[in-house]
């Protein structure tokens, strides 16, 4: 900084010292106010219970029979369960890899479809058309017998 009093560059003087003192104090003040604010603004990590497996209901669930698919709560993530036949089910991550929308299943062409930007996946989760960059993550589906006379239960687990 150039002050009229500075006699020579590099020589300390009173004005320069005071300016330095004031500058660092103001800097420290702003720093000590802005640091906590910045930390406050960044949301804390909240640990989520990790889910390995969920029961998706009976194989003859009316919603599954009617629409051919169902969105499950897999912990905090949505998972799409698709019914292809009485004993044939598939499950994939329910969020489109394009921009995070939740997908649905269209029975007619047999495709998983995202309404946001017309992303289309086949029944193995591979991208067929539209903007999605990656295939849907596949989940494992097992049918578990619950007892004599009872319909089997669909169990979805992380592959």
């Amino acid at each position: 900084m150039d002050t009229p009093e500075s006699p020579e560059a590099g020589t300390p003087n009173r004005r320069g010292f005071l300016n330095w003192l004031l500058g660092t104090s103001v800097g420290a003040l702003f720093g000590s106010v802005l640091y906590p604010v910045a930390r406050f603004l960044s949301p804390p990590e909240i640990p989520e219970a990790s889910t390995r497996q969920v029961e998706a209901g009976a194989v003859n669930d009316p919603e599954l029979l009617e629409k051919g698919f169902k969105i499950l709560r897999f912990g905090n993530e949505p998972v799409i369960l698709v019914r292809l036949g009485d004993e044939e089910f598939r499950a994939f991550a329910g969020t489109c890899t394009h921009l995070d929308c939740i997908v649905e299943f269209h029975k007619e062409p047999g495709r998983i479809w995202c309404n946001c930007h017309n992303g289309e996946y086949d029944l193995r989760g591979r991208v067929v058309a539209g903007p999605p960059p990656r295939p849907l993550e596949a989940f494992q589906v097992d049918l578990v017998a619950k007892g004599a006379g009872q319909p089997k239960t669909v169990v979805v687990s992380r592959a």
Binding site: P36, V37, R39, F40, S42, P43, P44, I46
Partner: peptide
Amino acid sequence: TTVPYGWLI
């Protein structure tokens, strides 16, 4: 308790 500096704010 959880947000950084939340108690202070």
